[in-house]
Nucleic acid binder design. Sequence first.
DNA 1: GGTCGCTTGTGAAAGGCTTCACAAGGCCAA
DNA 2: TTGGCCTTGTGAAGCCTTTCACAAGCGACC
Lengths: 218, 218
Amino acid sequence: MSPSGQRRISESTVRRLSVYLRFLRELTRQGRELVSSRQLARGCGTTPAQVRKDLSLFGSFGKRGRGYTVDELRRTLEGILGLGRRWRVALVGVGKIGSALLGYQDLARRGFDIAAAFDSDPAKTGQVVSGVRLYSAERLTEVVRMQHIELGIIATPPESAQAVADELAGAGVGAILNFAPVEIDVPDNVTVRTMDVALELEGLSFVLTSGDRMPSRK
Amino acid sequence: MSPSGQRRISESTVRRLSVYLRFLRELTRQGRELVSSRQLARGCGTTPAQVRKDLSLFGSFGKRGRGYTVDELRRTLEGILGLGRRWRVALVGVGKIGSALLGYQDLARRGFDIAAAFDSDPAKTGQVVSGVRLYSAERLTEVVRMQHIELGIIATPPESAQAVADELAGAGVGAILNFAPVEIDVPDNVTVRTMDVALELEGLSFVLTSGDRMPSRK
DNA sequence: GGTCGCTTGTGAAAGGCTTCACAAGGCCAA
DNA sequence: TTGGCCTTGTGAAGCCTTTCACAAGCGACC
């Protein structure tokens, strides 16, 4: 599939591939068969050249003069992104954000199953929320290992985030999505991505304050 | 404050400034007085040179041989990011994610007040959740104008996101944080940032699948 | 006061990402 | 078959961001 499996793919490219995929699924629902790089770009907030360059990093999937087959490109992107399977996810911290994630059906629709949730509050232990069993935080390593969970989501207060990350990494989780507003250290073989709502709002605050002097992406 | 108020600041720089600020606030809590670019970098997952370069875009805030005064740099960054004031935010969509945001105290702590929330479900209208009044979606424009709200958060299903964005933009909101998993079109004078949980997980899926061939950031 | 060690601020170099521009290929209609 | 139009895939150019490396400045200690 990829002409040279060793090329380094930038984070921004991967993010765009996900956006293309999201859009292609929408097109599938609409029954569209073909799509050009121009239409893809328009629907994904980028440029046609960018779309073609991104895809060309992995191969040639289009037909000159016609464009791309929606269904075929969708499957190709799913393959590239590793979405030809379902992923088992552990959720740590069942407070406001954690509960929202438990009930957020888009995750399951897109291939991510929350297989177990953990909280340090004993009152929650044993409950089943949105079909997911809540375990005591003490059992994290045990359950993650037992269930072969490969992805972790941290939705704890910031004070506990690092300790949880250490334990997830120790239990064999390879990637962590962190909702706690702190930067987290992990071993090199683990990837962390932090989502901080207030931090995004701060970015918007900057734009509003400085009169939109950020480079617009066309 | 800024030596040339016209330089274009990249989105990644702004994001890092927010991370520095978050870390500085932590240092303030700890009572630290001074911090060097090296320590800042370590705590924020970047390099000392990057820290100095980012700050140098706005002025000279450190002392050679000593580092930066935590308190002073914190206030400076708050100024740059436009956080010397509080922001009034409209939340549209009070489902799982919207409710979590209503109860998420970190937003208020960091200067963002949800001044009004909207939902299309008549059953919710009139309620007060976490101290925020819920309005019917029909009153969006009216209330946003009346309350001089400048920021919007979209937490609706994807089908409604574009229409809500149009209305927010029409009502004078200058920036939108979008949690719906779709790309959204807005006029040039409005900025949108989209946060998509599943999209972030897909990025992690790619990393796990392709054996971490993404460029590591040192 | 002088020296030593440490840190900032910054031009310059390096590296990476995006945009450009065009050859090659496909489709259709005449 | 030919011509016209459209779209992909891609080297090259351009632009932007990050990293490097070092002069200059500060503080502390002798």
